[in-house]
Simulated scan of single mutants.
Amino acid sequence: MQVKLVEMTSEEFQNFISFEMEHYADEHIKSGNWKPEEAMDKAKAEFETLLPDGKDTENNHLYTIRNGDKEVGVIWLAQTSAEKGFIYSITIWEENQGKGFGRKAMEELETLARELGIKHLGLHVFAHNTIARDLYEKLGYKEKNIKMEKTL
């Protein structure tokens, strides 16, 4: 396995943003945060705020995860201050899941983050995504906040 992070091309970014908005909306629906009829509009608004200049938005690093020449996923890091970064997204395409690409990509991203001067790296994971939560815990990420809700 030879995982490397390569800056997204414009075409890869267009594919990423289309997939990511739909996926993000769906995750909020699954979590009970958003209603299906409002989810895409809310997702689009958030992405327009976070990436106003698309892939050229300052302090945002969007990578295609490659294993040799094969694209296996995508990852997005934002530098939120001189010493802090936030991973907005990591997606390993379904046919590549469970093969260690997520772990390797996270390790590569941590190396790149250190090179940028980032000392603290955060991320968000939906509670129902137990596979991702397990990976992040194994990589040393600690829960900082837990939001709970009960449907009556």
Rank of each mutant, 00 (worst) to 15 (best):
I87L: 15
K104H: 15
E12W: 10
Q14D: 14
N96Y: 15
L152N: 08
A132M: 12
K150I: 06
G85F: 05
E20K: 00
W34N: 02
M21S: 03
L5K: 06
A78V: 12
E27F: 00
H120V: 10
Q14G: 09
K70N: 15
F13T: 02
A113R: 03
L152Q: 07
E71F: 03
G85Y: 04
V72S: 12
S81V: 13
T111Y: 06
F19Y: 12
I29V: 06
H61N: 11
N33H: 11
L50G: 02
K119F: 01
F126Q: 04
K144S: 12
M8E: 05
F16E: 04
E115G: 14
M21P: 07
E110V: 15
E137K: 13
I90T: 02
N96E: 14
L152S: 05
E143T: 14
K144Y: 06
E11N: 09
A127E: 13
G100T: 07
A39L: 09
I17L: 07
E149Y: 04
T111W: 01
Q97P: 01
Y88H: 15
M8T: 14
G85V: 10
H61E: 08
G85R: 02
M106N: 08
M40G: 00
Q97D: 08
E94D: 12
E143F: 06
K70H: 14
F16H: 02
R114Q: 13
Y63T: 04
K138M: 09
F47V: 02
E38F: 03
A105L: 08
Y88K: 01
K144F: 05
L123H: 02
E94G: 06
E143L: 07
A78Q: 08
I90D: 01
W93N: 06
H23A: 15
V6T: 13
E149D: 14
A127P: 00
I146W: 11
L51P: 01
W76M: 03
D69N: 12
K55A: 11
K55V: 09
M40N: 04
E149S: 08
E83H: 10
G85C: 09
G122E: 15
Y88S: 05
Q97C: 05
I29W: 00
S18V: 06
K119H: 11
P36G: 01
E7L: 08
K138Q: 14
N129T: 08
L152R: 07
E107Y: 09
I87T: 04
S31M: 03
E7T: 11
N67L: 02
K150G: 11
F86K: 12
P36S: 11
A45W: 00
G100P: 00
M148E: 11
E71I: 13
A78S: 14
P52A: 01
F16M: 10
F47D: 06
E38V: 07
A45N: 11
L123S: 09
E48Y: 13
T9P: 04
L5G: 07
V6I: 15
K104W: 15
K138D: 14
S10G: 12
E137T: 13
F86P: 00
V125Q: 04
S81T: 14
L112C: 05
E143H: 07
H61I: 01
G98H: 06
L123T: 11
W34S: 01
L62V: 02
G68A: 12
